[in-house]
């Protein structure tokens, strides 16, 4: 991949990351009420965060080779922020998929609405994780990029 393409993908990754962060708050807020159905919001938020993580994974190998060493040399603190951002993104995408599965499997016959409550917890956790990861990503990107 050329440097221009990597830079473009990195920018798209950053923008889609903030979009997915905002999108994940939508099902998290809607599902506070366990009987509420929010299939569209849950599906779109999950798709967005999956796209974000996929884009990140596409550029990760090149980033690890070209940018990360220089990042750690010039600022270990910013480098450690990048190290924290990656697992948070992984956790967010898993939580979003779990939240979607839980929400789709939720039925009114479940007397205590456990699946709906768990879906809310999963989306709330995913929203918090993506907020942290996106904020750290902006700090890292401002400091050094492709």
């Amino acid at each position: 991949m050329s440097a221009a393409l990597l830079r473009a993908l990195e920018h798209v990754h950053g923008h889609v990351a903030w979009l997915s962060t905002l999108a994940l708050y939508h099902p998290a807020i809607l599902l506070r009420r366990p009987r509420r159905r929010a299939v569209g919001a849950a599906l779109s938020a999950t798709a967005l965060v999956t796209a974000t993580v996929t884009l990140g994974a596409m550029i990760y190998a090149a980033y690890r080779e070209h940018v990360k060493p220089a990042l750690f040399v010039s600022s270990p603190l910013i480098g450690s922020l990048f190290e924290r951002k990656e697992p948070l993104g992984v956790g967010a995408v898993i939580l979003a998929w779990a939240g979607l599965s839980l929400h789709l499997s939720a039925r009114n016959e479940d007397p205590e609405l456990r699946a709906s409550r768990a879906a809310f917890v999963a989306y709330a956790g995913a929203a918090v994780f993506t907020t942290l990861a996106a904020t750290m990503g902006v700090i890292v990107a401002v400091f050094r990029t492709f």
Binding site: S101, R107, E109, P111, A115
Partner: peptide, 22 residues
């Protein structure tokens, strides 16, 4: 909310793999 008593139904248990897996 509970038309068939406390017997766990097929639909209400599909969330278990997702939750446990996560």
């Amino acid at each position: 909310a509970l038309p068939i008593g406390h017997v766990a139904s097929r639909h209400s248990l599909t969330f278990v793999p997702a939750g446990l897996g996560c």
